[in-house]
Every structure is written in C-alpha cells, then in structure tokens.
Design a protein around this nucleic acid. Structure first.
Lengths: 355, 355
DNA sequence: GACCGTACCATGTACGTACTTTTTTTGTGC
DNA sequence: GCACAAAAAAAGTACGTACATGGTACGGTC
C-alpha cells in the first residue's frame, strides 16, 4: 500500500496541477493539511518535502508554503531541452541559433539533441529528459504524418507541468499541444500559384510522405492547381520518406518520375532545397536543363539554394526568427503564462531556377 | 548557529570526500551515527537525506546507506555542458556534431552555449553551470592568449569533481587541465613550408592576437621561414582580434597590410578561412588577383573554402573527429579514468588559391 | 503618516517512541 | 554442506511533543 505521505503528496500535486491553487498562492498551512488529511504534521511535512524537491512549491518560514508554477526549479537557472531532427545540417543551425539567443538572454541552459527523424531515438531522448531535471522542451515532431508511438511520454511531460513547444511539425493526437509551424498549406499554394501564373500548366511535385509538412505542402499544391482548373496527375507527384531520401531519385521511384518529366512536365515543386539539389544533379545526368527545360521551386531558402547552379527560387523559412519565437513562447509558458500556437508565413525568394 | 542536522551532514560529506569511505562502502548505520554525534536518529536521517539529494549516497532499506562516488548523479542520465565560441557558424556545427554523436551514444544530454569569445559571457555561463547539475564540461577557451579572469571558476569545477576538457585552446594558468587541440605550431610550419617549397620568398601572414591558436600559428609560421633563411618583416604580418575581425581589413590596419602586399608580398598565410574569404573580397576590390598576384593558404578547411572563388587551399581541422575525441575523453574522465591531453595534426587540402 | 513593538502564526529544528518492511545473518535440522 | 526458518539488523513510516525562528498584521506612539 502506498504510504500516507506519498498519498498526501499525490493529492497536493493533483491540486496544484489542476489549478486549484494559483501561481504564487499559499498552500493550506501544515496544521490545516494535518487536519484535512487526518495525519500528523510530520507526515504533512514529509509530503511537502517531495513537492519541494520537485520544485513545485517553495516553503517560507514564518509565512507559508507557496506553489511555484513558473519559477526556476534549479538554483535560478532554467534548463530547456531542444530536440530537432538534425542539429548541424541544413537550416537547423539557424533555427538553433534563434533558440539559443532567446534562451541565453533569459539565463537559460539549452540541451540539444537530435532524433534523425526516428521515433525510437525520439523515445529514448524523451525518456532521458523525463529522468533529468528539465524545465521545458522545444521539440520538432518526428514523422508527424504517421501515428506517433511516443505520445504517452509527452503526456507524462504534461502531467509534470513541463511545458512543451512543438516546431515545424506536431502530433494531432495531442490536442492541447502548443506549436510553432510554417504555413505549409499556403506555402504549397504559393509555389503552385507562382508557377501557374508564369504560364506553366503541367506541374509536378516531390513531397515527403512521413512528415505533416509534406502532406500539407502537397495539399496546398494540388488544391491551388485544381482551383485554377489544372490537372494534377498522380504520376506527376513523387513521394519519398526519411529512409530513402538519399537514394529515391536514383531508384525506381525516381526513374518513373524522370519519365514523367520527359513526358512533358514543365515545372516541379520540390519539398525542400535538399531534395531540389539532388534533383538538379539527376536532371543534369539526364541532360535536362534547369530552367530551360524544367523550372523548379523549392522550400526553405537554405544555404544550398544560393550556392548551387542554377540558384534556386525557394520559399524562405523564417529560421532564426522561427527559433526565437518558439523559445520565447516556451519561456512565457515556463513563467506560467498561457500561450497559443502560431503559424508563420513563407516569403518567395526569386532566383534562377524558374524560366 | 548551524543546525545540528547540517553539521552532521557536513561531517559526513567531509568523510566521504576525503575518502574515509570507499566507493560503494556502507556508512555507519543510523543508530551508530546517532550515538557518534549524540543526536537523535531523526536528525541523522535528516542529515543523510541531504546527502541523498546530492546523490552522494544511496539508501537501501534493510541493508544500509552506501556511498556513491562514481555513479551517475541525476537519475541515470549524465548531463554534459559544451561551451564554444560560436554554435552555428563556421566549423562549429561539425565539432558539435562530433561531440553530440559520442555523447548521445552514452545516454548523455548535451547542454550547448556560446561565449562569442567574450570572457564576461564565459563567466556567466560558468556561473550558471556551477548552479546547475552538470556532470562534465567541454569548453573552448576564451581569448586564450590573454590572462583569463575566470580561472577561479574552473578551479571551483575542479573542486567539485566536475571533469573538464578544453578544446581548441586552453589556459596555461590551469596546469592540470586536459585539452584537445590542433597542432597549431606545426600547422603554421606546414603552411609556411608549403609556400616556401613552391618558391615564394616574400611571405606574409594574418593572425589572431587574442587566441593562443593565433600565437602558435604565427610562431610556427615565422619559425619555419627563419629556418629556411627567409626574412619575416613585421609589416608583412597583420594582427586582428575578436572585436575588430569584421572590419580590420578595411581599417588602417588592413590598409597598411594591403600596401605591403602591393609592395611585393607574393603569398599570405591566413589565420582561418573566414579571414581568407574577407581578404579575397578586399583583394578583388584592389584588383589583386588570387592566385595570379598573390597566393593564399588558410586554416580549417571549412565549408567556405570550397565555395568561394578561387577555392582555398586550406589546412583541414579534424572537426567531427575532434569533437568525438573530446567527448570520449570527457566520458572516460566522468567514469573515473585518468586522461591526458592530445594534440591532433593538420592535413593540407590543396585547391586553387596557390599558384 | 511613519515608525516601532508586540502578538500571533507560519515553518524549522530536535527529540522521543512505536511499529513496518526488507535484507542479512544466524542457527538449526537434515 | 545445504536448505530452510528464525532472529537480528537495517532503513522506512508514522505519530507525538516541544521549542526556535522568521514573517506578518495590528495597534499604539510620536
């Protein structure tokens, strides 16, 4: 049987979590709690010690015991976990910099880790975090287009009052999640509209199948084309996933798409610059010239976009600002404020990959 | 006056720290301690609770209380701080990736922060770390060519048995520090020898004045040239610092150096690719062609080296491996092993900036 | 209105006792 | 020598008391 002091602690923890006490409000006094639970004052004190160790309450001699929703749990230093799919590649350094500068300004330590878009890695990282004393979490959802096996762990974070901000992608299964994302559906529409307005009628696309961003960009892309009365043939759309992203363009999947290209596609919307660069290479091998034969629009406006040949017309991800916004939201949540999700817009950066 | 339970805790802490108890050995029982200190058993228990919270001891019901020297301090998860001058720029993402992959394999959390090569930032980061529960630290020394005002904080880490590995640069004032560095003096010699062997006799250099790497590279550079009977004129050497690195080439300092170049320097050794790229731009404005008029060799073999025009001949920093080595050293030290410092070699990557 | 002292109330410290639960040791019988 | 049970030993739980110490509010004085 659960000992009394744990039962008392559990009950208090529940009261705090469900908002029975406001932030900074005093708990009932030890003597009152002793009467309420019918235990001795020592037992009450033992229970409160547990909460104090978790940083949920602060005891002030002569005054009372105060709940401590927002305050810093570990000696004045907040510690925030940041989980992204990659750390050092592509646009992630910029996002991380945005996060770091915002956190650093608030005397915050940032713990960084990468999932490589694998749910098993995500799982072990979350387990680590649950065991270590973090005050908040910024996390990029892993394979957000698929059912996520780790939502239980996120719910545990929630129960422990560790606020969490999702970036880029989130899990629809977690209804109350706060997220910072780009407006991927509008992005898809912008890319399609940009090409349609330049007179291209036969437009294809390459999208990622396991991230929600891929689905949304495709949704916007195909919706926009349909709204303009243009047909989207299934064989003009190519899907790839995390696992085959390095090779699908040279596999049968890619070969089929290249055939579609040769059969008259005039323009392609690429899921991101990384894929666009790969595509450029494969097209060069097939002696298909960009932008003469085929035009490309891609996403993210990464460093790649400006150095490859031809330079890519790409929708710009807010990167630094994106990271900063996410970090500031999290800081507010850790301070006890309520925050809502935000969807950031894309900006078209025109370069040389569209005729 | 200090309360009894704290006095007891302090005494026990001292006994543990001075090695009176071996690792894993049981403390005296609560009853024995009660007699030894002449306090009640409750008071002893309160004292032991403090140690338990710090992870110094583990209590096992029915068995005893055991000291816990080596074990992981925070619930099975090690937490490591990583402090570099920059996080997301230049070669740092690669170094960080190396560190991350090694730490991640050992179930370790990495907390990342940047000093921007400022000792005041370094100071506040170290203070944060001293307040937060970290198990180890990888740190890039800040302005290592100058006396460091924060060595006292490093000594505090030392006293707390938090192992620390310096990377890229360290503080000679801390005699027992373990470091992982590149062989900067040899690097300077390699760069100078490379140019000398190609027949250049009038060779200049740009070096950083506030990092030990700058001093050592200069030392190797000038030593090698002297050994070969070549003269190193003071006005052929240009010094810059963290503060003026973005503009010195366009200031009077740079103007003077450009005059030296026009007065007959045939080749320049650059402190790193970042500076080399800036120099390329300034030279272009002065209609000095690289490598036709002037040859360049630089350090780090960063991404810059391969994308600028002409591509830079550069000594390759081990980056990923460098980070991995540092992380592995730290992990060994946290596991209680003794580690010594290591100096990693440079490799010359030949491109187009030398005639 | 500013200041100060006091009473009261809150948590903190300290000790005592009793009993429970788990682990380890001891002792017994085979 | 081994298996098993009993005893002992250790930490855990729980309650009680007493007093210390710091914080707050109230009321009185100047």
């Amino acid at each position: 049987m659960e000992p009394k002091y744990q039962a008392v602690a559990e009950s208090l923890r529940h009261d705090i979590a469900t908002g029975l006490y406001r932030d900074g409000e005093a708990l009932l006094t030890e003597v009152e709690l002793k009467q309420k639970f019918g235990v001795s004052r020592q037992t009450v004190r033992q229970a409160i010690s547990l909460l104090e160790n978790d940083g949920l309450v602060i005891r002030r001699r002569g005054s009372g015991t105060y709940v401590n929703h927002g305050a810093r749990k570990h000696g004045g230093v907040l510690s925030v976990g940041v989980i992204t799919t990659y750390i050092t590649d592509y646009i992630f350094p910029s996002i991380v910099r945005g996060v770091e500068s915002a956190l650093s300004a608030e005397n915050c330590i940032m713990s960084l880790s990468a999932t490589y878009n694998r749910t098993d890695h995500e799982r072990s990282l979350l387990q680590r975090i649950l065991e270590s004393p973090l005050d908040g979490l910024i996390v990029e959802g892993t394979k957000t287009a698929l059912p996520n096996p780790n939502t239980g762990l996120y719910e545990q974070l929630w129960e422990r009052n560790i606020p969490c901000v999702f970036i880029n992608g989130y899990y629809p299964q977690l209804p109350n999640a706060v997220y910072v994302v780009t407006d991927d559906e509008s992005g898809g529409r912008m890319a399609a509209a940009y090409l349609a307005e330049r007179g291209f009628t036969r437009v294809g696309g390459i999208f990622k199948s396991d991230d929600m961003q891929g689905h949304l960009r495709y949704q916007g892309f195909s919706g926009e084309l349909q709204d303009r009365g243009l047909r989207v043939r299934d064989d003009a759309v190519c899907w790839f996933s995390t696992e085959n992203k390095r090779r699908f363009l040279r596999d049968e999947t890619g070969a089929e798409f290249i055939r579609s290209l040769k059969n008259g596609l005039e323009a392609v919307v690429c899921y991101n610059d990384e894929i666009a660069v790969e595509l450029l290479e494969v097209l060069r091998e097939h002696h298909i010239s960009v932008p003469r034969d085929v035009s490309l629009v891609s996403f993210d406006n990464s460093a790649y976009a400006a150095v490859c040949h031809p330079k890519l017309t790409s929708l710009a991800h807010p990167k630094d600002e994106f990271g900063r916004v996410a970090a500031e939201k999290l800081l507010n949540m850790m301070a006890g404020k309520r925050e809502s999700s935000i969807v950031l817009p894309w900006t078209m950066i025109e370069r040389d990959s569209v005729r």
